[in-house]
Structure formats: C-alpha cells, structure tokens
Simulated assay, not measured.
Amino acid sequence: MAEQLIVRAELIELKDDLSDVLPGGMRVPVQFNPESFKLSYANQIQAQPNASSKAPPRQAGRGAGNQSQGTPARQFVGAGTTKLTVQLTFDVSAATTDTFLNAEGKRQSGSVFMIDDVRYVTGRVLYFMKPKDPGAGAKDASQRVPPGLRFSWGKFLFDGIVESIEENVDFFSADGKALRASMTLNMIQQTILVPAYDKAVQVTRPQGGAAAGATPLAKARSGQSMQQLSDSGGGGGGFGFGVSASLDVGGGIGGGVGGVGGAIGVGVGLHPGAGAALGAGLAVSSGVAFEAGSWQRIAAANGIENPRTLAPGQFIDLAAQRPRIVTG
C-alpha cells in the first residue's frame, strides 16, 4: 500500500504588516490536527441619532416619547473583524517518530515532540503572544505589537495576530514535569476575510463509493492499543439469541431458536384422533455471514505500523477490510 503522510497544521511567523512569511521566523508544527475550528465575523456598526425622533423640549421627561418617529439609523463605520478560535493539543508522552508533512509539504519527523516537558512546546506557541520591541526605524518607540501569525492547514490560511491564549496542563510525570497540555488559540484580523475560491473543484469517486465523512471513525485514547480499540469500538462481531414458542388450539406446539447468523427450527405436531405423528426438522440458512473483528487486519488496512500503541486522537476506520466468511 502506498505511503500516505498526514499534513499537519503549522503556526508560522509573519512580517509585522502580515504581508509575507518572515524569513528565519518562528515555526511551530502542531502535534495533533484540531478536530475543528471556529471562524467569527463582525462588522463595526454605530447607531446614528435620528433628528426626526428627537422629542421637543417640552416633552422631555414625559415618558418614552413618540415611538412612531422611527428607530435611529445605523451606519457601518469600520472595516470589520474576523476571528479564528482553534484548540491545539500537545502530548509528549505519546510522541512518536512518525513522519508527517508540514505546511510547505516537506517531510518532518514527529521526534521533535519527544521531549521531557510539554511546556517547551507551549512556550514556543506563547511566543506569538508577547509583543516585540519596535525596530530601529520605528516612529514611536513605545508602540509594541505581537508578531504576525499565520495558521496554515492544507489550503486553509488565516493571517492575523494573537488576541488571547488559554493553556490547560492536565497530565504530569512522577517527578512533576508537564507532559500534556491543550491550548485555545484566539486570533484576530482587522478585516472580513472571505475565501478566495474562483470555483469549486469537482470530486469524482468510484461507482458505489461512499461520500467523504460517511464512514464512522473511532478515536484512539492515550495509551490505547489497536486490539483494545477494536474490542471497545465495535470491532468484533455480534451475538444474538432468541426463543419463541406458540401453542395451537388444535394440539400443535412449535418452537424456534435463533443463533449467530443462522436459524434453527424444531417443530413437533401432535394430531389427536386416528393417531399421532411426530416430525422434526433442522435447517440452517445458506449464505450466512460471520464478521470477525481481527485487529491485525484493521491495523493493516489503516496503514498502522505499530498497532500496540496508537497516537492519542488518531481516527481509525474499524470497518476497513473486515474479514467476511460466507458459507453456502
């Protein structure tokens, strides 16, 4: 199977005017791609006084005034803002050497996260929060601004500055070192950012192929193996058992037992009068299918090299290449 590398999001330092990437600037790849992000758009609107709605001086203090005069006019007075909110997770206890692609499409090793304290990584993210000293040619030496930042993930780009960061450390080593942290990054751009797409790209898929996102995926937890995920997430087959019985007024008794993927029927008929007849039948339906949740096959189908330790937050398709045995 061809090697498929994951493209990870990256934080990239920009020039102060956000015009381009700063040569030699800070670059921080994310360890786990975010599950989602939120974009917020807002216009700056100010209510303008409406002269026709002003009450004469003699009516001042006599209630709400004449409501039939209309509401104050509203005027667009600013360029508006666009905000990005995204949560990033870093876990050095789950770091691997797996190769990924950065924002430039270059291969990079996950060993950059194999360190003893996660706050080394989160500190690099906080770099974008701290204002920089103005340059030598700055007109106002007291004016300091945070570094320009680009959040890049595939074709999604967001350029702006950091408005706020929240850091939550929730896992520590025995000697008190921080191992896992989540950061909520809030960025802002003083304009309305509209995606610049000329036209949508038509996507084709094989006949009968499922649409993107149609297959449910299971999310691995920290320290979970492929076998544990398969057992807990529906990777194994199912078992069913049922019993039904009915009594006929004419003296007939019937019963049925259903097992896994098959049906067994036993019938006994008693006919009073001239004599008694006993009949029994056993039938197993043809084309019975049994599903086996072989975690080794699921791991191979998902391209997982080390099924004993999954990366936290990794999504697995438990239905991929499941073995199917058909009899009949």
Rank of each mutant, 00 (worst) to 15 (best):
2 A>T: 15
7 V>N: 10
9 A>P: 02
14 L>D: 00
23 P>F: 07
23 P>E: 09
28 V>A: 00
29 P>A: 05
33 N>F: 00
34 P>A: 06
36 S>M: 06
37 F>N: 03
40 S>N: 10
47 A>M: 10
48 Q>M: 05
51 A>D: 03
74 R>L: 11
83 K>Y: 01
84 L>R: 01
89 T>R: 05
98 D>T: 10
106 K>A: 10
115 I>S: 03
116 D>W: 06
117 D>W: 00
117 D>H: 06
117 D>M: 02
117 D>A: 03
118 V>A: 00
122 T>L: 06
123 G>N: 08
128 F>Y: 07
130 K>T: 12
135 G>P: 04
135 G>A: 09
136 A>V: 15
136 A>E: 15
142 S>V: 09
144 R>W: 04
144 R>H: 06
144 R>N: 12
147 P>R: 01
153 W>E: 00
163 E>K: 14
169 V>Q: 02
170 D>T: 12
174 A>Q: 11
174 A>G: 13
183 M>R: 00
186 N>L: 05
188 I>S: 03
188 I>Y: 02
192 I>F: 10
194 V>W: 08
194 V>P: 02
198 D>Y: 08
200 A>L: 12
204 T>R: 12
209 G>T: 13
213 G>N: 09
217 L>T: 04
218 A>G: 03
219 K>L: 04
223 G>A: 05
225 S>G: 07
226 M>R: 01
230 S>K: 03
232 S>T: 15
233 G>I: 02
238 G>N: 15
238 G>I: 13
238 G>F: 11
241 F>S: 10
243 V>E: 09
248 D>T: 15
249 V>M: 14
250 G>R: 14
253 I>Y: 11
255 G>N: 13
257 V>Q: 11
257 V>M: 03
261 G>E: 01
265 G>H: 09
266 V>H: 06
273 G>Y: 06
277 A>E: 14
280 A>R: 14
285 S>N: 12
286 S>E: 12
291 E>D: 11
292 A>T: 07
294 S>H: 06
298 I>F: 04
301 A>P: 05
301 A>T: 09
301 A>N: 10
306 N>Q: 07
306 N>D: 11
307 P>N: 07
314 Q>W: 02
320 A>Y: 06
323 P>M: 11
325 I>V: 08
